[in-house]
């Protein structure tokens, strides 16, 4: 199978104004992915499915990811130019090497929702090609194009993403809650979801549970 870069080149030739970015995977798995802009997602998906060299006819896995706002502390190496010599240079002196310093830079990454599709080919038995689509930010209503018209396999999985992450899929034929009940208002797989407080004391030394107990019982009951 072609590499993801080659696929991107071919897609760009076909869809010149599409936003396509290859997202590298820093881990050892070596599964980079292709970030697709929302407007062209459906046509790109159809191209990937029908292209005779790729024939990605099988969409295995559809899932949402919630990326909250984060502060990333990055270590940036910067070359500091040597200070201008105050005195006339002594030609015999060794040349001043440029100094490399490391400094930590805080970078704010605004949050967004992401939907990841893992595509394989049953006909040619290759894969995966990983597609991602992203929303601009985390404000509701978050909306992304549905790929159910391209792959039927997305139908229930996109409903699940809608149910748990609150991402509306435009073009989905039957977008309803699938796992939670219809009256439910929250989107529980979001990172900022707060579950209902039906905490019950349990005899455990587990730290997180004790924290929860403290939140649940704000004032300690009278001692016995």
């Amino acid at each position: 199978m072609e590499s993801l870069e080659q696929i991107r080149e071919r897609l760009l030739a076909r869809f010149p104004d599409a936003a396509l970015t290859v997202i590298a995977n820093p881990g050892p798995a070596g599964q980079p992915s292709l970030l697709v802009g929302s407007p062209h997602a459906a046509s790109i998906a159809a191209f990937l499915r029908d292209d005779p060299a790729l024939r990605l006819d099988y969409c295995s896995n559809v899932t949402g990811v919630d990326w909250p706002d984060r502060e990333v502390v990055e270590t940036i190496k910067r070359t500091v130019p040597p200070p201008p010599p105050a005195a006339p240079a002594d030609p015999s002196a060794p040349p001043v090497t440029p100094k490399v310093i490391e400094e930590k830079v805080k970078r704010h990454i605004p949050g967004y929702f992401e939907v990841v599709y893992h595509l394989y080919s049953m006909a040619l038995k290759h894969g995966p090609v990983i597609l991602r689509t992203r929303t601009a930010d985390r404000t509701d209503p978050a909306s992304l194009p549905s790929l159910t018209p391209i792959w039927r396999a997305c139908e229930f999985q996109e409903r699940e993403v809608y149910d748990l992450f609150g991402i509306r899929f435009t073009g989905h034929p039957d977008l309803r809650r699938i796992l939670m009940w219809d009256e439910f208002k929250d989107y529980p797989m979001r990172k900022d979801y707060v579950e209902p407080d039906d905490y019950e004391w349990e005899p455990t030394p587990h730290g997180a549970v004790l924290d929860k107990a403290r939140r649940h019982y704000p004032a300690p009951p009278e001692s016995r």
Partner: peptide
Amino acid sequence: RPKPGEAYGRIEGPKGEIGFYLIS
């Protein structure tokens, strides 16, 4: 503590393809 990254691993389970998608 795996390094940051992501992976999708799958096997042929008795019922079909069972896969796990992990982001670290």
